[in-house]
Each structure stands twice: as C-alpha cells, then as structure tokens.
Design a protein around this nucleic acid. Structure first.
Lengths: 174, 174
DNA sequence: CGATACCGATACGGTTCCGTAGCAGTATGG
DNA sequence: CCATACTGCTACGGAACCGTATCGGTATCG
C-alpha cells in the first residue's frame, strides 16, 4: 500500500492519490487499507514520511567545493519533474493541513542540514563573514536555485550552478 | 462571476473553486456561467488573468535603493497568506496544465520586470559586474525571498530585507 | 406588438471520491 | 481441530463535481 501510494504521489502528485486508486494498483482491498490506516490522509502521510531520507554530508575541504557539490545534487534531484511535482503538491497542501505542513518542514530541514554544516565549517575557516546568521545564509545560498526550479520552473545551463555558487560565496565573504 | 471566482481563489486557492460554488456565491445560475465560459477552467483562467497587474517601476537612483524597494514590496505582498495560497496553487496546477503554466509564467514575468530594469540601470552605472547575465541576476536577487516565503513558509524580521539585498548587491558587484 | 436574446431555477446523468458493512476464504496457533 | 485474526470481494450511502437540458420569465429592439 505504501509503495503504491508513493508511486501515485511521485507520478501525479498528491492530487492523484485516492484510496480507491491505491486499492486498484496494489491489489489490496479497500477494507484492508482502512483497517491499517484509519483514513486516506494517514496512509498518504505515512507513505510520504518514508520518502524523507537523510542527505549525506559533503566535505570537500573548501566552502566553494562543498556548496557546489550540495547544490549540484540539489539541482539533479529537484529538476526531475516527478520530484518537482511531488514537492509542489506537498507545499500546496501544507497551507491547509498542519500534518502536511509538518511533513514539508521536515523535508526542507532535512535538505538544508548538510548545507548548514558546510557553512559552519566555512565560517570556522574564515571564509564567511562572522556577522552573518547561518540560517539566513543557507536560505540565501539555496534561494536562487529554489527560485529557478520551483518558481520559474526552469533548469540550468552548463556551468551555471558553479557560477551562482561563486556569487553567493562572494556575497557571504568577510 | 469573475469576482466570485477571484474571491474563492484568493481565500481557498484554486482547489476551492468549483462552478457550483461560483453559482452559489454570485447568485448567477450555473447555466449562465456555462453560456459565457465554455468550461470551468476557462472561467478560472479568465478570473486569474484579471489579477495579473503591472508592477510600477521603482527608480530611486541607486541599485541598493531600487532593489530594497522592490523586494520590500514583494515581501509585503507575498507574505499575505491569501496571496501565498493563490500563487502556490497556481504553481501546483501549472505542472499539469499548459494554460495555468502560461498564467504562472505571466505572473512571474510581470513581477520581475521592474527588477530587470533596476538591474539594467545599475549595470549602466557600473554597480554590477558587466559579465553577469541580467536574467540570472534577477533570479539571484529574488531567490532568497522566494525561498523564504514560498519554500520555507516563513516571514522576515526587521531589517532583514535590507540585509539580504545588501548581500546580493555585494555578490553582483564588479 | 412580437421576435430574439438573455437569464434564473431546477433537475438530471455521470463520475469520482469517501468511509463502512457484510460475508466468505485462509492461515496461525493453542 | 477449532478459535482468532487477517484478508479479499462486493456493495452501499452520501457527498461533491461536472456539464447538459428544460422551461418560464424578462428585456430589448425593430
């Protein structure tokens, strides 16, 4: 059931999900679904919770290297239509539903964790102005990528990721 | 009808919209709605199209001033829950529907126009590295704000807008 | 006055959901 | 072997949509 739910959500977003559809795809009877998950939303949340995976740390030794690596990975993932589909619909539903809001926050937090550590290391090395709040800094670094991918539904040309990261590093320099 | 549609969309997002609901609110018979707009989506698109208004230009004489003004306005608008609600649901639907994708692109383009002009003036004054692509630059400047508001569903503290703009100006400097 | 055009009210058929209920089959375990 | 627990199948009632159709009323214009 969880698997079928994930498949649907990835392919068609949360809107494509319905208990009937899960029953159809998984071959599991609807009654069984309701026995395990009291309601459709609970199944959906459980399935989505499984998709939140920890992002491995990236430590190349330089701030520029770390951020480039992190954002390259981010772009590789976030430009996939299915991922964009999923994230956008979670974001959309999070405005009405606190449970989905929590899920969305978890996704964002998990995604930002390695960035935060990279920034900490960079600050320790003196590559970042010590006045800068690291929470703000991570928002700033991710900002252009989030805006391009989510907001403008665009992609990136060759070398563009690196160029943007360079500019952000320059912005945060002491 | 358009008015009722806009009210619904602003309050509950595109998901809250239905032809029946518009009929209820507006006092207009459903048959009349279908006579004027062949389908529900056409009504919705027409109503949303009316909400796309030109953003006035901002010319304070300095790049920092212009961008601060523009982004302050952006934040004032985009942090309103109803606007966020609306934009997020348009964004969500734009992944399935080309008409809504066009609408969403129009919204983004319109919103970015004054920023682009401000950047052009800034570059003419030598405040921006001439190597930088202005399209990319506007994405970069807006990025942190878009990320904070849409992606992280957050707001801004006192003086934070100015601080972010300063950093972005620094990033783009020659 | 009368044709034409527009509108409101209402109902309908069809689809897709939701969550529940009843009933029969199978597996497990004391 | 038999009770207990799970499961599948099927059907149901209820709700919300969609888009269409019918029909009586009004208003505008020649």
């Amino acid at each position: 059931m969880l698997r079928a739910t994930q498949d649907i959500a990835v392919a068609h977003g949360l809107e494509g999900f319905s208990v009937d559809e899960v029953a159809r795809r998984s071959g599991v009877a609807k009654s069984t679904i309701y026995r395990h998950f009291g309601t459709g939303d609970e199944l959906l949340l459980a399935a989505m919770g499984e998709l939140v995976d920890a992002v491995p740390d990236a430590d190349t030794g330089s701030l520029l290297g770390d951020l480039t690596l992190i954002m390259t990975q981010f772009v590789a993932i976030a430009t996939q239509p299915s991922i964009r589909r999923l994230f956008t619909s979670v974001l959309n539903r999070s405005l009405d539903n606190d449970d989905f809001a929590a899920l969305q926050e978890e996704l964002v937090t998990e995604r930002k964790a390695p960035m935060r550590r990279a920034l900490q290391r960079g600050m320790a090395r003196g590559e970042i102005d010590p006045e800068i709040d690291l929470e703000l800094a991570s928002t700033i670094v991710q900002g252009p990528f989030v805006a391009r991918v989510l907001h403008e539904r665009g992609s990136f040309r060759q070398g563009e990721v690196e160029r943007i990261v360079e500019l952000m590093v320059k912005a945060m320099a002491p």
